[in-house]
Design a protein around this nucleic acid. Structure first.
Length: 199
DNA sequence: GTTCTAGAAC
DNA sequence: GTTCTAGAAC
């Protein structure tokens, strides 16, 4: 057959560029780590970024450059890294001398990549909307950095909780982190929180 | 993790 | 009738 060459076979249309493969939302921190609009500090070991949806006036994430998916992937040898992450976030906090921060990890994080939350205790933010948001920072679901490090050093691994136990904490009734007030819903809590803020 | 929105709660 | 929460998202 004249002209019938094997190479003539159904080539993909080279004018139709395939859209870049979508990454799952849970991998979003990988993109954020390289977003100049979010990165506030960076060295050879860690990146500190602004949380894309801050749940308080100041809300940063400290992420190691080496890939650790979560707390479970840590061994005793990583305790030094966790110390470093907390130290660097406390150093950043000195830029905000009037601001109270907490430093810690979500027990069952939604996003991959180990990340330390550094969050101001005003919880004044339009992105703070749901009971889950609140409880993730204001129940035992929020693991203080110091406790995580201690566990890693003493037991050689970070012991958190089961997903079921985590869900139970996130579903707890709302309770103010500064007083006994237990609001009926999120709008009432957000209104109440202003009483504890000294501008 | 967020967005969207149905229907529960008020 | 409006406010608010909670579950689906191919």
């Amino acid at each position: 057959m004249a002209g019938a060459t094997p190479s003539k076979r159904a080539a993909p249309d080279s004018n139709t560029l395939q859209p870049a493969k979508k990454t799952h939302w849970s991998q979003g921190l990988l993109a954020s780590m390289n977003d100049p609009n979010l990165v506030v500090e960076s060295d050879d070991r860690i990146v500190i970024i602004k949380d894309k949806y801050p749940k308080a006036r100041y809300h940063f994430l400290v992420i190691p450059k080496l890939n650790f998916p979560n707390l479970k992937s840590l061994k005793r040898e990583q305790s030094e890294l966790l110390h470093y992450m907390e130290d660097q976030s406390r150093l950043l906090a000195t830029k905000y001398p009037q601001v109270e921060f907490r430093y810690g990890y979500h027990a069952i994080p939604s996003m991959s990549q180990l990340h330390l939350h550094m969050i101001s205790q005003d919880f004044d933010s339009p992105c703070l909307k749901t009971k889950r948001h609140w409880n993730s920072f204001n129940t035992r679901y929020f693991l203080d950095s110091a406790d995580v490090i201690r566990c890693l050093e003493e037991r050689g691994m970070v012991v958190t909780m089961t997903p079921i136990a985590g869900e139970k904490l996130l579903d707890q009734p709302l309770k103010c982190h500064k007083c006994v007030y237990s609001p009926q819903n999120m709008p009432k809590l957000k209104q109440h929180l202003y009483k504890h803020i000294n501008n």
